[in-house]
Amino acid sequence: MFDAMIDPTANPAEAVRATPPAPRPDRLRGLTVGLLANTKANAEDLLERVGELLATREGIAGVVRRKKLSITDPVPADVLADLARQCDVVVVGVGDCGSCSASAIADGLALEAEGIPAVVICTEAFSAAADAMAELQGSPGYEYVRIPHPLALLDAEGVRARAEQVLPAIVGGVTTASSATAAA
């Protein structure tokens, strides 16, 4: 009845295909973990604590730290290539705003496309934006780790506690095994 009405919406300019998840290692022992932080308050601190816990609990070989300065744009190509070359798995975070939550999901998928297992951390307040981005990228239902909101106002102890809390999900997200910690 309304066929003559022009649809004002548009599809993405490029055809999107689902990104298959990169193959997961069975455990993290001896592997190098990338920490891709953004500029949100406490993002770097949370990833740093996660890295420390992965060293002591999972026996990782080391971490590679990178920081993304734009909260909106995808991870720069050189940083992506660098992480893909040096790391076995990457932890991305923290999605804690409208733009950066969606952007973090896109970065996680970009790493998966490079063959690097990734796990993205978002605060639960922004799951709608994260889900919308996963769908836009052709990967609806892409798994990521949700942490309680807010993160920005936590003190050092609070950030450490949040890292403890999220560790099993991070390990589970980038390996085929459950966390050594969680299994213990």
Binding site: P8, A10, A13, E14, D73, P74, A102, A106, L136
Partner: peptide, 21 residues
Amino acid sequence: ASLPHLKRRCTVEQAAVNAAL
């Protein structure tokens, strides 16, 4: 207009449709 991170862009024609709308 374009939002590369969302793979979206708007042409003159699409703008015209939405201006009419």
